[in-house]
Computed example of a mutant assay.
Amino acid sequence: MIRGISGEEVRTIKKATEAAYRLAGGVSVVATRTRASISQLSKYASTNPENGETLIPLDVAIEVDRAAGSPVIITAYAEMLGFQLVVATPDEQSDEGPVSEGDAHSIARKAMSLAEEIFAALEDGKVDAMERRSIVEKCYRLKRAVGRLVKRIGGEP
């Protein structure tokens, strides 16, 4: 059977799947939020020859992306088709209300998550396209959180 998806595209989806797992807190966390077992989830991200053709099903990809807080896998699929995803609705977090300790914790978590992603990307001495995409996404998340906080304390973002 001739496939319409190239080997490079399969590797891109598998890298996106692995990145989404990391963003979501790991395969064991993802397994609690999907119908797939840890071993099956591992196969979806594995580039070993025996798992080379095993791609993540759409429903599981959506659940993983939700757990990751970002459409990492779905974005990779869309880009393969020449499309770009855009946010349909603004963030659910409010730009109004008093500043709280929760705001400080949220920003600290986002900043630490960004730093960890950068450290992980630099481990092998080369930042690949998937790692760059993930770093940029985390930069935007942090930027949005800081912008909301600035608005809430009366400044201009």
Rank of each mutant, 00 (worst) to 15 (best):
F83K: 10
L142A: 02
G7A: 14
A31Q: 01
P49Y: 05
E117D: 04
M130A: 07
G147M: 03
A115W: 03
S94I: 06
T54D: 08
K110G: 01
Q93S: 14
L149M: 11
I74R: 07
E18F: 13
L81V: 13
T75D: 11
G154W: 07
R11I: 09
A24Q: 09
E116S: 14
A67G: 08
R148Y: 03
G102C: 04
A20G: 05
R144F: 02
D103E: 05
R3H: 13
E79K: 07
E137H: 05
P57D: 10
S100F: 03
S46K: 10
G147Q: 09
E101K: 03
R3S: 15
V99T: 13
R109Y: 14
T89I: 06
Y77T: 01
L55M: 15
P57Y: 03
L58M: 08
E18K: 15
L85Y: 08
A78H: 11
G52W: 05
T54F: 08
V64K: 00
S134M: 05
E117A: 09
I118M: 03
V146L: 01
F119P: 00
Q40W: 02
A108S: 14
A88N: 08
V99G: 08
Q93Y: 15
R35L: 11
I56V: 10
A121L: 10
L41S: 00
P98W: 08
P90I: 06
R22I: 12
R141A: 10
F83Q: 12
E92S: 11
L85V: 07
E101P: 00
E18C: 06
S28T: 13
P57M: 11
R132D: 02
T12G: 09
I73M: 07
I74Y: 05
K43V: 02
A19G: 05
G97A: 10
L58W: 14
R148D: 12
A108I: 14
A111R: 00
A68C: 04
I107L: 02
E137M: 06
A104W: 09
A45I: 03
E63D: 13
R66Q: 12
Q40K: 03
